[in-house]
Simulated assay, not measured.
Amino acid sequence: MTSTSTSGTAPTTGTAAAVEVEQVTRRYGRGDQAVTALGPVDLRIDTGEFLVLVGASGCGKSTLLRLIAGFEEPSTGRVTVAGAAPEPGRGAGLVFQQPRLLPWRTVGSNVDLALRYAGLAASERVARRDALLHRVGLDGIAHRRIWEISGGQQQRVAIARALAVDSQLLLLDEPFAALDALTRERLQEDLRQVSAETHRTSVFVTHSVDEAVFLGSRVIVLSKRPGQIALDLPVDLPRTGATPDEIRALPAYATARSTVAHAVRAAAA
């Protein structure tokens, strides 16, 4: 495992920055009633990183994700995605805690809709849709209605839909929080594999230390409000060629988990 940093700025790897957050704060309300929820935060996310934001409730994890997505604007500072201001709903694939699928559409047509918005020609959509569903382990159910499949399968559809977006950035806000433990573990494994295959830059929000260390190539711990970077930890674990059990059995996994857990407790104190 590589060295621990609390500066909030990743070591420069020579790759282009996918996301840059510069002296960002986010306040809600006005005057004496104003509350600073986040910041100041400085953060660079390199292309291809899988960055996980973890911390106690109310520390600003989802706020930071919404700023990167362009759904909110900083009170001070600047956020850029691929060198430009983020475009709401366009600059990234998005997966939320609830799948937010269209229940009157089939599994396949939910993904088709995302492909249409991404500008893919109608003649190419079926093959691309089937490839995306295969990638998330949903072969053969494109014809089924959303209400006919399980919650875990619905979240897989949401991930497939997010991957349909013509963007190298994937943003995930506690996508597995409402699922049972077994389904959650399976989807963690699937997402880790998809990340390794696609090399998309990903930002993932969670409360779970285990999830953070298993998924992330880098873990950021945020302090209690106003959320600031309490720990910036590169995680040096194999992204391919090892089973989940083998990864979790590595000494580096145990060390990273202990480091992150300690930081989360200290930051919330």
Score class of each variant (00 low, 15 high):
41 V>K: 08
41 V>M: 08
42 D>T: 11
43 L>A: 13
43 L>P: 14
43 L>G: 14
44 R>Y: 08
45 I>G: 04
45 I>S: 07
45 I>K: 03
46 D>F: 15
48 G>E: 14
52 V>T: 14
52 V>F: 06
53 L>G: 09
54 V>R: 14
55 G>V: 08
56 A>G: 14
57 S>P: 11
57 S>W: 05
57 S>K: 09
58 G>E: 15
58 G>R: 15
59 C>T: 12
59 C>N: 09
59 C>Y: 05
60 G>V: 07
60 G>P: 11
61 K>T: 11
61 K>Y: 10
63 T>D: 05
64 L>S: 08
64 L>P: 06
64 L>Y: 10
65 L>H: 07
65 L>V: 08
66 R>H: 12
66 R>K: 13
67 L>I: 04
67 L>H: 03
67 L>M: 05
68 I>W: 04
68 I>T: 04
69 A>F: 07
69 A>W: 02
70 G>N: 03
70 G>F: 02
71 F>Q: 06
72 E>G: 02
73 E>L: 04
73 E>I: 03
74 P>W: 03
74 P>T: 04
74 P>V: 04
76 T>P: 00
77 G>Q: 09
77 G>P: 08
78 R>M: 04
79 V>P: 06
80 T>V: 05
81 V>L: 02
82 A>S: 11
82 A>M: 10
84 A>F: 03
85 A>L: 09
85 A>Y: 02
85 A>M: 01
85 A>H: 01
86 P>M: 03
87 E>H: 08
87 E>C: 07
89 G>C: 05
90 R>V: 09
90 R>S: 04
91 G>Q: 06
92 A>R: 03
92 A>D: 06
93 G>F: 03
93 G>L: 08
93 G>D: 02
94 L>I: 14
97 Q>Y: 01
97 Q>N: 07
97 Q>P: 09
97 Q>D: 09
101 L>S: 08
101 L>I: 12
101 L>V: 10
102 L>C: 08
103 P>N: 10
105 R>Q: 15
105 R>H: 13
106 T>E: 03
106 T>M: 05
107 V>E: 07
107 V>A: 11
107 V>G: 14
107 V>M: 11
108 G>S: 00
109 S>G: 00
109 S>Y: 05
109 S>K: 11
110 N>Y: 00
110 N>P: 02
110 N>M: 00
111 V>Y: 02
114 A>K: 00
115 L>N: 06
115 L>M: 05
116 R>P: 00
116 R>K: 14
117 Y>F: 12
117 Y>M: 09
119 G>L: 10
119 G>R: 10
120 L>S: 01
120 L>F: 10
120 L>G: 01
121 A>Q: 11
122 A>D: 15
123 S>L: 01
123 S>G: 15
125 R>T: 02
